[in-house]
Amino acid sequence: MKAVSRWLVAYIEQCSVYDGLAQALARTPVHESDTCRLSIDAGTALIRRAADAGTLRADIDADDVRSMAAAIAWIGGQLPPDPDRRTRLLQMMLDGLRPR
């Protein structure tokens, strides 16, 4: 779970680099770069391993997790400014990903 959490923090930070990136990453890119593909593949592998190990829910879908992360990146940058919003939302998401 720690590796997934660290990857999600980095993914959300990357999604927040410029306006519009989170929206683009929430969709399946038609022409993705090698860097995007590497990030997506790494996250998918981490999520699958954590689910297989029982530290994440077994019904987790990596695309859904990435979409939620992109949404957190986007919403965390909206007005009014709240520097802790992304952290709170990520924690709620991680709580929901834990096995029941």
Score class of each variant (00 low, 15 high):
residue 65 V to Q: 11
residue 25 L to V: 06
residue 99 P to N: 09
residue 28 T to C: 00
residue 72 I to W: 02
residue 64 D to Q: 09
residue 91 Q to V: 07
residue 76 G to M: 04
residue 80 P to V: 08
residue 2 K to D: 13
residue 90 L to W: 09
residue 89 L to I: 05
residue 74 W to A: 12
residue 55 T to D: 12
residue 39 S to I: 00
residue 47 I to S: 02
residue 6 R to L: 15
residue 34 D to N: 02
residue 68 M to N: 14
residue 76 G to D: 01
residue 59 D to C: 10
residue 11 Y to M: 05
residue 81 P to C: 02
residue 60 I to R: 13
residue 14 Q to C: 04
residue 70 A to P: 12
residue 1 M to R: 09
residue 24 A to E: 12
residue 14 Q to M: 05
residue 42 A to T: 15
residue 85 R to H: 10
residue 78 Q to T: 15
residue 46 L to Q: 09
residue 95 D to S: 06
residue 21 L to S: 00
residue 61 D to H: 10
residue 75 I to H: 06
residue 61 D to M: 02
residue 54 G to E: 04
residue 81 P to G: 03
residue 25 L to Y: 08
residue 98 R to L: 15
residue 58 A to V: 12
residue 88 R to N: 03
residue 63 D to A: 14
residue 70 A to I: 11
residue 56 L to D: 08
residue 68 M to E: 15
residue 94 L to M: 13
residue 16 S to Q: 07
residue 64 D to L: 10
residue 86 R to W: 08
residue 1 M to K: 09
residue 28 T to K: 06
residue 22 A to R: 05
residue 18 Y to A: 05
residue 94 L to R: 01
residue 13 E to Q: 12
residue 54 G to K: 03
residue 82 D to S: 09
residue 58 A to T: 14
residue 12 I to T: 08
residue 60 I to V: 15
residue 89 L to P: 11
residue 91 Q to F: 01
residue 46 L to F: 06
residue 72 I to C: 05
residue 2 K to Y: 00
residue 11 Y to C: 02
residue 8 L to W: 06
residue 51 A to K: 02
residue 11 Y to V: 07
residue 4 V to Y: 03
residue 46 L to D: 09
residue 93 M to K: 05
residue 89 L to D: 15
residue 76 G to Q: 01
residue 20 G to W: 12
residue 32 E to Y: 01
residue 54 G to T: 03
residue 29 P to D: 04
residue 29 P to L: 12
residue 86 R to T: 09
residue 19 D to K: 13
residue 86 R to Q: 14
residue 53 A to P: 02
residue 77 G to V: 06
residue 44 T to R: 14
residue 72 I to G: 04
residue 81 P to T: 10
residue 22 A to V: 10
residue 86 R to F: 04
residue 77 G to N: 13
residue 66 R to T: 03
residue 68 M to Y: 14
residue 83 P to S: 14
residue 32 E to T: 03
residue 70 A to F: 06
residue 99 P to R: 06
residue 33 S to H: 03
residue 27 R to E: 02
residue 47 I to E: 04
residue 91 Q to I: 05
residue 67 S to V: 14
residue 84 D to C: 04
residue 26 A to R: 12
residue 39 S to H: 00
residue 37 R to M: 02
residue 70 A to L: 07
residue 77 G to M: 08
residue 12 I to Y: 08
residue 31 H to A: 14
residue 51 A to Q: 04
residue 7 W to D: 08
residue 10 A to Y: 07
residue 6 R to C: 13
residue 38 L to Q: 05
residue 34 D to T: 02
